[in-house]
């Protein structure tokens, strides 16, 4: 049977980037830190991509060079990264900060958990609405294995298990 659905479009749109040499990506790592007993989420984005995508809201003449622009950018970007545990409860991540290093803009989040939940659902829309060819990579570190996901195209939520 063909299900009928209603489609509502929203969001903003910037230039496409279907080309060979500048591939937009975000690399996110989720891991449990034994020193702090916290789950850490680290997003590695390319600074220029963030500046280009968020230029209007950064209120900055020199992009991410100033702390306020970094704060604004990280608040905006983490909105499109969401986590749920195996039971379907959203895991609320706190935003610790962000910093520039070379070409990279890092965003730090954390949450007080005893381990990385064995089952996760993840939404990783960071910057993906700006570049249809953008790919977001996720590495989840468990005690003795590493699990990965790739988000591309219009991909929505994806699941991942330790086993």
């Amino acid at each position: 049977m063909l299900r009928k659905c209603l489609l509502i479009l929203a969001g903003s749109l910037l230039a496409t980037a279907v080309h060979a040499h500048r591939l937009q990506t975000v690399l996110t790592t989720i891991s449990w830190n034994p020193n702090t007993q916290l789950v850490e989420v680290i997003h590695q984005t390319h600074a220029h991509d963030v500046e280009y995508a968020l230029f209007d809201m950064l209120e900055s003449q020199n992009g991410l060079e100033n702390i306020r622009a970094q704060a604004l950018a990280s608040i905006e970007l983490v909105k499109s990264f969401r986590l749920w545990d195996g039971a379907g409860n959203e895991i609320s991540l706190s935003l610790v900060g962000a910093e520039l290093e070379a070409d990279y803009f890092y965003i730090y989040q954390e949450v007080d958990l005893d381990e990385v939940p064995p089952d996760l659902r993840i939404e990783h829309g960071m910057l993906r609405n700006n570049w249809p060819e953008m790919q977001n990579y996720l590495n989840v570190e468990y005690a003795d294995s590493l699990k990965s996901l790739i988000f591309s195209g219009d991909d929505g939520r994806k699941s991942l298990s330790r086993n």
Partner: peptide, 16 residues
């Protein structure tokens, strides 16, 4: 071209 994993459509894709 493959569709998204859970029936989503972005503005960019629709425009294209």
């Amino acid at each position: 071209e493959t569709a998204a994993n859970d029936d989503r459509l972005s503005f960019a894709t629709l425009r294209r």
